[in-house]
């Protein structure tokens, strides 16, 4: 069953405070979090989080398309190696 709309999206409250502080800073920062369950909110867009996957903190650059998803979705806990040899990486 999906979450009731009247409750709003779930996010750990302490993340909001840290994100607000990071937004006001102009430094190159990564916010290391364990909270994989938190929903990505519009105020997180543009920030980089390090989301714990049980072993390490994987960098997650939050973009508009990710709003509404959970942080844990972008930090896989199992290893997968793809074969694509012409894969490209775009510098954000």
């Amino acid at each position: 069953m999906s979450r009731s709309v009247w409750k709003g999206p779930f996010v750990d409250g302490y993340l909001l405070n840290k994100a607000e502080a990071a937004r006001n800073s102009t430094r190159n920062e990564i916010i290391k979090i364990w909270s994989r369950r938190s929903t990505i909110l519009p105020q997180f867009v543009g920030l980089t989080f390090g989301v714990y996957n049980g072993r390490k903190f994987l960098p997650v650059q939050v973009s508009e398309n990710m709003v509404g998803h959970k942080f844990g979705e972008f930090s896989p806990t199992r290893t997968f190696t793809s074969h694509s040899s012409d894969k490209k990486a775009k510098r954000g």
């Binding site: 994987l58 960098p59 650059q61 990710m66 775009k90 510098r91 954000g92």
Partner: peptide, 29 residues
């Protein structure tokens, strides 16, 4: 290695305990 899980690419630099995961952004790289 360079990895990407739907939230921007990042570089895996160094090995073992000295390994660092660096977001592939203009600010960091």
């Amino acid at each position: 290695a360079v990895e990407e899980h739907g939230a921007g690419a990042y570089l895996v630099v160094g090995e073992g305990r000295g390994e660092q995961l660096i977001p592939f952004t203009r600010a960091a790289v």
